[in-house]
């Protein structure tokens, strides 16, 4: 029997996918529309999704007169290095917690979960005091250390489940061959959880990219602001030029969306490979 007879018609799927795409894109499309409008058209009635006199003037302004390009660079640097640090600290711990049996393992896993319950918002005041004590206020290093530490519990937790999913026979074989703990980790376990690692990295990157309150509190100098703080500081005390903010936001968002398009295959493959033991 042919395909369409077996599966039924394809158009309902296309229609449903198109509907989802549209519904989820309305706010972004409105943002795009605002970014192409002249100031006078921002509050026009009736509201128009397609501007009457589209202009790219706002983009020139966002690129030349605001710091958005620098914010992008800062965000990239902070997100990338934080992710690297998170993974470097979490991977061995996750592996040990998955492979070794020791008394404190249960309490550690519980504690890691409990740490995630606390909103970083409530920790802002003590964290500021701590980072200041270390002399790291207004440095990317301070922000990266805090970011990485806050994500370590979740990343251990996630990576442990990937390690748990590896077949035990593999490790028995390695032991028979006389491989030590480090060799087994590096040569056998790590390559096998590669896709999971990619998924964990992308989750971390995304959360660092969007983080606002810690970056706001820990960074003072504009040349170090990340994208969310930078975009927020475009809003004025009295009035906000929405068409400019919109253009700057689009400039700040496009690289992330692009990165997702490039990485989404790895991401989904990684999660598929065994985000949860099953």
């Amino acid at each position: 029997m042919n395909k369409s007879a077996r599966y039924g018609p394809r158009w309902p799927y296309i229609a449903a996918l198109a509907a989802i795409t549209l519904v989820f894109l309305v706010p972004q499309l409105w943002l795009l529309s605002l970014s192409l409008k002249e100031k006078a058209a921002v509050y026009q009635y009736p509201p128009r999704l397609i501007p009457d006199n589209p202009t790219i003037e706002n983009y020139w302004f966002a690129l030349a007169r605001t710091q958005v390009p620098w914010y992008l660079w800062n965000s990239f640097k902070v997100a990338f290095l934080s992710t690297l640090l998170t993974l470097l600290a979490s991977l061995p711990a996750a592996y040990a917690l998955s492979r070794e049996k020791f008394r404190a393992r249960g309490p550690i896993m519980g504690g890691l979960l409990a740490m995630q319950m606390l909103s970083p918002v409530v920790l802002l005041v003590p964290i500021y005091g701590l980072v200041q004590g270390l002399g790291l206020v207004d440095t990317h290093a301070g922000l990266i250390l805090v970011y990485a530490s806050l994500q370590v519990p979740f990343t251990i937790w996630l990576m442990k489940s990937f390690f748990d999913g590896l077949p035990p026979a593999l490790f028995d074989a390695a032991r028979v061959d006389g491989a030590g703990r480090w060799l087994t980790f590096r040569a056998i376990a790590l390559p096998l959880v590669g896709p999971g690692l990619a998924a964990a990295a992308i989750l971390n990157l995304a959360s660092y990219w969007a983080e606002f309150s810690l970056a706001l509190v820990l960074l003072d100098a504009q040349e170090r602001f990340t994208v969310p703080v930078g975009l927020f500081s475009l809003q004025g005390a009295y009035e906000t030029e929405w068409h400019i903010v919109a253009a700057a936001s689009i400039v700040g968002l496009v690289p992330v969306i692009g990165a997702f398009v490039l990485l989404q295959r790895h991401f989904i493959a990684g999660l598929t490979a065994g985000s949860v033991k099953g």
């Binding site: 296309i14 989802i20 972004q28 969306i257």
Partner: peptide, 26 residues
């Protein structure tokens, strides 16, 4: 849709995810 080889899955996925990467304040 993927199993039926219907096109558009990636576009829809990117649309949904593009909402997720917008910073909360924005």
């Amino acid at each position: 849709a993927r199993r039926r080889r219907v096109p558009g899955g990636l576009v829809a996925r990117v649309a949904v995810v593009s909402a997720w990467v917008v910073p909360g304040v924005l």
